[in-house]
Design a protein around this nucleic acid. Structure first.
Lengths: 192, 192
DNA sequence: CCGGTAACCGGAGGCAGTCTCCGATTGAGT
DNA sequence: ACTCAATCGGAGACTGCCTCCGGTTACCGG
């Protein structure tokens, strides 16, 4: 749902335009963050705005299609990590991936938390799946005694998202982005 | 600087309009967050947009006037806390105030970090003063051995801002807002 | 009390962005 | 080749930001 995956194959021109739009959208999101101008995307794809809005009724629908792959990959990574390495390392690795993913486009972290809150959103399902996958990893780490047991999955996600947001805010400043996550993590480790 | 504090007293109507604008701005920011419509604020103050923009040339100038008191109070609180209680408790108390303050208006945390980055902003001075006050508190806590010594002030601020942001995002959901800060804090305590 | 003038007001209008609507166009079956 | 449903494209309605300047008014000196 959201975009067009009709039973009938799309007409050739429609398919062409859709692909072109997605490609330009990726570029625009990279350059201007998640609130890049949709008109500009349409223009760069050499297509009218009407065409853009028919393929992707809302900005979110467009974002969804651009991001779904990554999010699903993240969920898959979590599932794969469940039975490899130590629980602690698995959680660390996955969290790193999470931050990496939510940092590709400026403003993405905000879009993600908004999606998590809005049950009607097109991206909601993907986010939810990802969240649950991460939750499993957290609980395993807690059972292994690597992370303090009184942290709820929601709290954990909030903290990690906060770090991700902070990193994207302070980018370019006098702050090494890769320091925040370890700091948080070492703090959540079970105290001696 | 930023708003009008001319040497000559303002004309009565000007003063009246300015006060009215500030009052409505506070209400609007509360209701719609920091990107409330300026036109609506002007309308609610029964004044033309031109009048609003003359008194406050940019949205930021308006925000500044609305927030300066609070920010200065925060900086003052930090200075007062420097020589009372334990260093640890002082830092905790101040950080709590910080989060409290940046949570009054939705979007304020983002506005604050943006201001911290933009040296030309009207709010910059206030933010900077506040940041330095907080820094003093952090260093004292580190010297007392209450907080791990390898955390830079910038990192500390980033983490706290991240928590503040997360709290404002997840508001209303299944997350107790007052849990995040303690979690972060206990984590930053010197490991035994 | 009464100008005169500097200070102030207000909203029209330019700009940019989002989104809708519908006449024109075109791909794809027959 | 012909048809028509699918698709296109952009005009236009709307909202918000910000500027500009002709009209208004508070205040001061007379």
């Amino acid at each position: 749902m959201g975009d067009i995956t009709a039973r009938r194959a799309m007409r050739a021109d429609a398919r062409r335009n859709r692909d072109r739009l997605l490609s330009e959208a990726r570029a625009a999101f990279l350059e201007h963050g998640t609130d890049a101008s949709l008109e500009e995307i349409a223009a760069r794809a050499e297509v009218g705005v009407g065409t853009l809005y028919r393929h992707f009724p809302t900005r979110e629908a467009l974002l969804e299609t651009v991001l779904r792959e990554r999010f699903d990959a993240l969920a898959a990574a979590a599932r794969r990590l469940v039975d490899s390495r130590s629980a602690r390392e698995a959680l660390i690795a996955w969290t790193g991936d999470f931050v990496e993913t939510t940092t590709v486009y400026r403003g993405l972290t905000a879009a993600l938390t908004a999606t998590l809150r809005d049950r009607t959103s097109a991206l909601h399902a993907s986010c939810e799946a990802m969240r649950e996958a991460g939750t499993t990893l957290l609980i395993r780490a807690q059972e292994a005694g690597d992370v303090r047991a009184d942290v709820t999955p929601m709290e954990f996600l909030a903290l990690v998202a906060g770090v991700s947001w902070a990193r994207e805010q302070m980018a370019g400043g006098e702050l090494r982005g890769d320091r925040l996550l370890p700091l948080l993590f070492e703090g959540l480790e079970r105290l001696g």
